[in-house]
Design a binder for these strands. Sequence first.
RNA 1: GGUCCCGUAGCUCAAUGGUAGAGCAGUUGACUCUUAAUCAAUUGGUUGAAGGUUCGAGUCCUUCCGGGAUCACCA
Length: 505
Amino acid sequence: MSEDQQFTEIERLRLAKLQALRQQGQEPFPPRVERTHSTAEAIAAYEAAGEQPVSATLVGRIRSMRLMGKLAFAHIEDGYGTLQLFLRADDFGAEALQHFKDHYDLGDFVEAQGEMFRTKAGEISLNVKVLRMIAKAITPLPAAKDEVVDGEVVRHATLADPETRYRQRYADLAVNPQVREVFRIRAAILRALREFLDKHDFLEVETPVLQPVYGGAAARPFVTHHNQLKQDLYLRISFELYLKRLLVGGIERVYEIGRDFRNEGVDRTHNPEFTMLEFYMAYADYQRVMEFTEEMMNFVGKQVLGGSKFSYQGHDIDLANAWPRISIADAVQEFAGIDLSKYPDAASLAAVMAEKKYKVRAGGSRGKLIEDLVGDHVEPLLIQPSFLYDYPREVSPLAKSQPGDANTVERFEGYMGGFEICNAFSELNDPLDQQARFEEMGRSLKADDEDLHPMDEDYLRAMRYGMPPNGGFGMGIDRITMLFTDQPNIREVILFPHLRRREGE
RNA sequence: GGUCCCGUAGCUCAAUGGUAGAGCAGUUGACUCUUAAUCAAUUGGUUGAAGGUUCGAGUCCUUCCGGGAUCACCA
């Protein structure tokens, strides 16, 4: 491929401008810049000085240009806002103005030194004395133009194609300010969660991403290989079993925020890698964790949104209302019209579901069928923050059974906006019961997939040393971010979501 | 993986089976208070790829690539 063919016509023109700058002794990518004010600071300083001229050196990216014969206007954008540059032949120099017109483009980063003033049209601007290129843009940004309507900046014909936006997130972020805002909120959520947990004496830890035995959830793992050890390793599907080992070690309250990997289908609420918070709290049960969850989410709302109310996809949601707590049995009775106590086994439950024309999965256990009922008939209705509790034992191998009801475990899930946001239980700490559950699960999984044997002997050994009773909790950060930023798709809250590889890339 | 929809200029989008277009961006010129600046002129295309039907395909058919929605899957 010749050099000409890898660049578009516009790019070749810009490369020529870059070469011209170099030939004139102006380095288009200098290593150091001057900056006395951000754009916001410069405006504040000018106002604070009673609108008397204030000297300032600003940096930023050129976002608009309006060129006239002996006068030019341009807006630059930095991390704090935008500001208009005013270049007039009288002050800036006729030759310098022509040089600017010939060599500077939208998207270039510049350093501008001059004095703050107000234009005749009333906009606080920088009357530029000296302008310098600090990073030349070869490829044009995909945005068209900004229009100011009632003080709001409206950007026209901006990058909209989702594929390009995700593959070239840098371009998306550069031209779509609302995308930057999503990730600012995401960071604020993480900060607030850490602040809350730290305040409550939790210790933040990091546990292995590469694991010889995966576990803690029912999901297919990614497999990788360590060459020197000649050993297959799995990317973790949860943190659970490692974090609970730490309770055995005497850490009473522990949490981890990090990445989980699940080799499963991809849709608008699932990405192959996603960010999870898990915490474990010794001497707490699932009821205590439920209260703590409400408290934590209200704290996050206050820190991130400044209150408890937000809107998600047209629904007004309020974190501060007491979160309704509904048992699985009551929820299924109310929303699916089935009294679970009358159908004690998979066959009879499947029969009544078929009678009601509900979807029935072939060969599903009673617990699995109950989960399906909840997923189809209850979950989509739970728009306001709500808890479902008391789950079937056979879909919860790490949760403690209810006293007096071995088939029901002390577990809850939190819902908001019509999807699951968290999952928690009174953690099983009886090593003998745990071993039986693993064996049970091994058998039921074996029927589907011979490869799935998540028996973790070392975890059982840890538990035999004695694990304090504790409540555990897991929450998907991506989904919380979707809710708080009103995004319908998980890819909108992940900077570089996974997409299929394109030919030749 | 199944089904449906989509892919046209750098960006946003048009085009009954009949000459591939517009706005913005770009280029050239005019303009000393513009702000989607304005005015005049103008460049830019293997219509995602490869086949097929047809006198003629952006449009119809097949396969492939990529994306979106939905279903399946996901304690």
